[in-house]
Structure formats: structure tokens, C-alpha cells
């Protein structure tokens, strides 16, 4: 297992959000689905050390990670594309991408190669290479955020709603690329766009009210009556 989460509990102040979540990611691509407010982002924030877990364990490549500082989680090899992007608005695309790799031991030595990959994946970033990220459109910023995470050459790539604000053709392309990437990188992705993302993942969990209510392969989820009625719609 690359990532092994067991009985994770977390919340904000007195509000309990995660009620004993267990999930794992191997050399594969895993989806997290669920309604707004289910706790998907909170799971990710707990893994990244952005919120402190109340209980449970998080193991990454055999090392216990729960409660570890965010920058150390990143240096250990987990890259995040946050739901809110969290870019550096007053810096150029070039600097944002460079900073994705500069502080991560896995990314720094192969920065030039990763940059080529990212610019090939998102040609618009090459055109806007010197533009301040704060002046770019939401969708373009999403591409910078994905690119910045890839620059780290992560062992585990976590994407929180990567398709948010992207036009459908780009969404399809992003998921195609993610499907290719999963050969080398483990992926954990949350997505409202369940239909599109099922193409790119191997397995998925459905989270409701802070607990895992369903776990299955992509093919299994696609035909599950609960998933079909609640998330795929007709």
C-alpha cells in the first residue's frame, strides 16, 4: 500500500466531520465520491496535515504520518491540488511551477523534465509562462495548480475536485492524462463529475456523513443502483 488510512476521525472545533474513515491507495487510481459537505476535503486535509486528526492512523509508504506538518508531508512525496487551488497570485506561472518542485527532494533534481511534461499537458501555460497567476481565469489557474503538483514528481497525487471550473473538453483531457499518469503515480481524487472520473480510476469510495458507505471497482460503481441514482443521474 502507498497510503493506508485507518479509522480516521477529524473535525473542526466541536464539529465532528470524519467518523472513522478507513481507505487505502495502492499503485492505482482511487476516487472519493459523496455529496457536498460529506467530508471529502476534510479527509484530504487530514492526510496533508492541514487539519489535525482526532484519532486513527495514516500510513504513507510505511511511515506513520498523522499529525505531521504539511510541508513535511509534501516533502515525503504527496502532492495536492487543493479545491481552492492555493496558488501564489502575485507570481508568474513559471515561478508557481518552479515552487512546486523546488522544496521536494523527489522533484527538484528532475525539475526540467517535469516542466516539459507539464507544459506539454497544458500548452496554454507555455503561452502564459510569464503572466501573473492572479490575472488568469479560474480554469487556467486550475491548470497551474495541477501542473504545480505534477512538478513535485509525487508518489501520491491528491486532486480535490480537479475539474471544478474547467471546460468539458479540458476535463476529458485531464482525466485521460490522469489515466496515463497512474502508471507511475498513485492517485486519490475527489470529484463531483463522477461519470467523467470513473473513466480514470480503478476503484472508488462513496463517503456520506463522514463514513464510507460503499467501496467498489470503477466498473462496479458504474452499475451500482445507489451510485447511479445519487451521483450519475439519468
Amino acid at each position: 500500500m502507498i497510503l493506508d488510512v485507518k479509522k480516521l476521525e477529524a473535525g473542526y472545533g466541536k464539529l465532528r466531520v470524519l467518523d472513522g474513515i478507513s481507505l487505502s491507495v495502492g499503485k492505482e487510481s482511487v476516487g472519493l465520491f459523496g455529496p457536498n459537505g460529506a467530508g471529502k476535503t476534510t479527509i484530504i486535509n487530514a492526510i496533508m496535515g492541514i487539519v489535525k486528526p482526532w484519532g486513527g492512523t495514516i500510513e504513507f509508504e510505511g511511515t506513520r504520518m498523522e499529525g505531521m506538518a504539511t510541508h513535511l508531508v509534501a516533502r515525503a512525496g504527496i502532492a495536492l491540488v487543493p479545491q481552492e487551488r492555493e496558488l501564489f497570485p502575485g507570481m508568474s506561472v513559471a515561478d508557481n511551477l518552479e515552487l512546486g518542485a523546488a522544496w521536494v527532494p523527489r522533484g527538484k533534481p528532475i525539475m526540467a523534465r517535469q516542466l516539459e511534461t507539464v507544459l506539454e499537458l497544458f500548452p496554454i501555460l507555455k503561452e502564459r509562462y510569464r503572466q501573473y497567476v492572479g490575472t488568469m481565469s479560474g480554469g487556467q489557474q486550475r491548470m497551474v495548480a495541477i501542473g504545480r503538483a505534477l512538478m513535485a514528481n509525487p508518489a501520491l497525487l491528491i486532486l480535490d475536485e480537479p475539474s471544478l471550473g474547467l471546460q468539458p473538453s479540458i476535463v476529458a483531457e485531464v482525466f485521460d492524462r490522469l489515466a496515463l499518469l497512474k502508471k507511475d503515480i498513485s492517485i486519490l481524487v475527489t470529484e463531483q463529475n463522477v461519470r467523467e472520473s470513473l473513466r480514470a480510476i480503478d476503484r472508488g469510495y462513496v463517503i456520506e456523513n463522514g463514513a464510507v458507505v460503499l467501496e467498489d471497482t470503477a466498473a462496479g460503481l458504474a452499475v451500482n443502483p445507489h451510485v447511479v441514482s445519487a451521483y450519475l443521474g439519468i
Binding site: 510541508h71 502532492a79 497570485p89 515552487l99
Partner: peptide, 24 residues
Amino acid sequence: TTTGKAALAVGQNPRGAAIVGIDV
């Protein structure tokens, strides 16, 4: 400089900086 850029990044978005491995 790498350290200077990291400082600038921390000033603009400390959470984003931590996410890319900068010790804020």
C-alpha cells in the same frame, strides 16, 4: 533565489506554500 521566492510565496499564500513543501 529559491529561498527568496519561497519567502514571497509564503507572504502571498502560507497554506499554498506549505503544500509545496516550504517550511512556513
